[in-house]
Design a protein around this nucleic acid. Structure first.
Lengths: 338, 338
DNA sequence: TTGAAAGCGCTAACAT
DNA sequence: ATGTTAGCGCTTTCAA
């Protein structure tokens, strides 16, 4: 088992031309089956592998998809990544995966790096900072350079490309309605992701549900916290309003933290305080009490994103851009009443 | 912002040869600074990027590292991945990352795929199935083909390559001792990873601690569970032994599950039953009570693995293979006595 | 200081 | 059925 062998070496071995070997290995009709057989057999036993990087030169597609994800420690993105990975591998695509770590600059650099290697397409969920700064030049440039992009979850609508999202408005709407239906009178919303598109949409859904039930929206019940604010203190201030009996948390970290604070404050859950959270990860399943969550089906989103990209790569025809919307579902657990 | 431009196009623009452009962009001493300047400026404004895939052809290194991880939903591997990602990006390396999903076949396929693209080196943690079947031909072949490999966490000692591991024996040893010191008399071990190298080592550490304290090792207290066995039932059978007052869980999933079962059975934690678990992820921090864990410093392991590989890639000299051992630390929480 | 030309490994159009 | 050749984008020797 030595260094990789080349067409040239095989050609020399059999005293034929490189072209013959190339054709033989590609099972061309032009080559006699005798020749094909011996060459293919030789190639196999000598573990010949075509160097896919050369594909770029002559053919155009590299069977490589770039993936940029904001944060792999986030359960939703981890699931989405697994979905992308499965779908890509199944279709013979290789992934170059990177983590933007929520940083705009890193995202810009990564895209440069990725374009530098040659990829057929890109799957991305935007960094928090990118959505906050609304600076999408790196994305637009990439599209202008003819690299198809699929954005998922954290998307920017003004950019012309395929998108896969969850119906965040509807998810929050349903969750809020569920709280109302099960007896909550005064529901607060906890968001540490208000800079994100999905954060804003979820707030919309919350408001929509209240309005439809003729409950006035009170801005002070919408708790928007930045990274640097003290979560515990802020929550305690909010909970001074003893009438609050429901909490809609926009992701799981703030949900489990809120749960702890609420428990410590002596509330009974779900009787005194009901909680629903976005992100159906592991945490909500194992805390006490278990938390009712809105599942965004990360795996399925990832799969769909990869599917969409691969479809576009295969039909090089210019089908119009699509936005696939994945339905959320409510996973009922012990933090809400029946 | 159009399609990527080539050396050829720049050459045509300035009526010089491709070679001149190439040299100018590489800051060659052969080119006049005037020429260099205008070409470099033009390249910059037109966003010229060298196609790294061509690097393979002429130069040998591609600045690409392959990463194969068994399961990204596992907190430890997610952390390790982040560590690898940071270190690689910092050093200008690109990652091609794949998930073996604990499958031997997938691991074999991925390695093929990776070798097919051209990479400088590979970082891998072995799939469960690979360790169970002890089939390492794909790894050995890769090494024989001259691709440096760094294995981390789940390593195979018989393979000659760099390795980064945690001191699993010592980690389990310390944890067991901590349980003993805080009053536990009869400690059971819960492993759902007995097919893994790390699982076996942790059992060793547990036994070592017992022996040093003159406590007989009882095999029936070592609970080895496969994927298909019913965890709850098995645990309940074990807990029929009412004298058990300590639990050493070899990873966090079984720890939180055990915790729930123990709580339901009416034990007081940590008074009636103390628990320590490997894997310092999010779960142990948020369950009730919080679980004392052994941190394997995933991030640092990943960083070290990448560091080790990059160092080897840079010094093409054949330094002997190293095994870096990262120390574990005990994070004390509420599931153990003081 | 610049350029011509070979070549990296491969494919594809065009001979033979 | 097989070979010749050009060329993908780039680097690198060698020549001018």
């Amino acid at each position: 088992m030595e260094k990789r062998i080349t067409l040239k070496q095989i050609a020399t071995t059999f005293n034929v031309s490189i072209a013959t070997v190339s054709k033989a290995l590609n099972d061309s009709y032009e080559i006699s089956s005798a020749t094909k057989e011996k060459i293919q057999h030789y190639a196999k036993t000598h573990n010949y592998k075509t160097k896919s990087s050369n594909y770029n030169l002559v053919k155009k597609n590299t069977k490589t998809i770039g993936v940029i994800i904001p944060n792999i420690m986030n359960n939703f993105f981890a699931k989405a990544f697994v979905g992308i990975e499965n779908e890509a591998t199944e279709n013979g695509y290789r992934l170059i995966s990177c983590i933007s770590n929520e940083s705009h600059q890193k995202e810009v650099d990564l895209i440069e790096l990725l374009k530098n290697s040659t990829l057929d397409g890109l799957i991305i969920s935007l960094a928090e900072e990118t959505q906050r700064r609304k600076d999408f030049n790196h994305i637009k440039n990439t599209i202008n350079q003819g690299i198809p992009i699929v954005m998922f979850d954290r998307v920017e609508n003004s950019i012309p490309c395929d998108k896969v999202v969850v119906n965040d408005i509807e998810g929050a709407f349903h969750a809020t309605n569920h709280l109302l239906k099960t007896g909550c009178k005064r529901i607060a919303l906890v968001s540490i992701i208000d800079s994100l598109s999905v954060g804003k949409l979820r707030v919309e859904g919350y408001k929509k549900a209240l309005i439809e039930s003729n409950i006035p929206v009170e801005e002070k019940l919408i708790i928007r916290l930045g990274k640097n604010e003290d979560f515990d203190t802020s929550m305690k201030i909010v909970l001074a309003d003893k009438k609050i009996d429901g909490l809609l948390c926009l992701e799981e970290t703030s949900a489990v933290k809120s749960l702890q604070i609420v428990k410590k404050a002596g509330y009974k859950i779900p009787e005194d305080m009901a909680i629903i959270s976005f992100t159906n990860g592991e945490l909500p399943k194992y805390v006490t009490p278990t938390i009712t969550t809105i599942s965004q089906h990360g795996n399925h989103i990832g799969k769909t994103a990869a599917e969409t990209l691969i479809k576009r790569l295969n039909n090089s025809n210019n089908t119009p851009f699509s936005t696939r919307i994945i339905k959320t579902s409510l996973i009922k657990r012990d933090s809400t009443k029946n």
